[in-house]
Design a protein around this nucleic acid. Sequence first.
DNA 1: CTTGATGCAAATGGTTTGCATGTTT
DNA 2: AAACATGCAAACCATTTGCATCAAG
Lengths: 153, 153
Amino acid sequence: MPAPAVSLDELLDQLRQHGERVTVARRAVLEELLDAPGSHLAADALADRIHDRHPDIHLSTVYRTVEFLTHAGILTEVHVGHGPNSYHFAADSHHHAVCDTCGAEVEVPSDLFEPVTDRLRRDYGFAADPSHLTITGRCAACAAAAEPAAASS
Amino acid sequence: MPAPAVSLDELLDQLRQHGERVTVARRAVLEELLDAPGSHLAADALADRIHDRHPDIHLSTVYRTVEFLTHAGILTEVHVGHGPNSYHFAADSHHHAVCDTCGAEVEVPSDLFEPVTDRLRRDYGFAADPSHLTITGRCAACAAAAEPAAASS
DNA sequence: CTTGATGCAAATGGTTTGCATGTTT
DNA sequence: AAACATGCAAACCATTTGCATCAAG
């Protein structure tokens, strides 16, 4: 289980050192993300959690904050096939495989795409950034349920 | 250059054989996709092209049509990082690497993700379907422009 | 005090949907 | 004629933005 690679204080210091302001919203976003299961949340879900303690923090602020933190290199924005984007710490590099059928998420190591990025660089000079990627498909359970016939003999 | 793997008539027959109706919109969508550069278009662009000959075909119909054709197994829906989804023939399997900076698209062979899908299956039992994936990053030109310093020595 | 972040509401872009009508079979 | 696809307008969702206000430095 990948523990958060950094602490809240470290992150806030990192901001201050770059001359960026530490605001309630920024602290709140980082806090919630730090103790989110899997450390990744969509803006919507993030706002919901933040509202428990800071009912005044607006969803648009959450959007602006994750955008800011992403540009600051602290967060990574992940594009999930359909569904909203989600955010996790850039330091905690990993990918997700999301089941189209049941929505289950499998966390996969960050080097999964190495063969892909290597080949893209070698063959096309393309510097791929797979950090935004989410793989879709069928999880083990759903795959088994979907093709019971194919499992025989 | 990957020529269309199937002809319009074959596709229409395929529909008829499954008891599905052949309509003006379906024919139009298939026609435009067949002669689109790279054989992939977003719903919006698809509608624009269709409007040249069929100004009456509504954008929502295009959406319903590509959805239908996707479920019918004829098209594949591709999720591009930001930007709208695009559609291409399922038979013409390939992926795209899209440059974050200039928007250039590199077409890459369909087996690119094989190491990824293999590993997901082996390690997680996850039946990945990479056909919807688009890789983002920097194309050769933009990567070179972005890091001139790193190229020295 | 100055710059920059936030709340709110309203706009945006992509996509979906309800319903009456038109088309395919 | 029956079933289904379509046009249109309106709804929807995720996200962005303008602007006046507020807070961090």
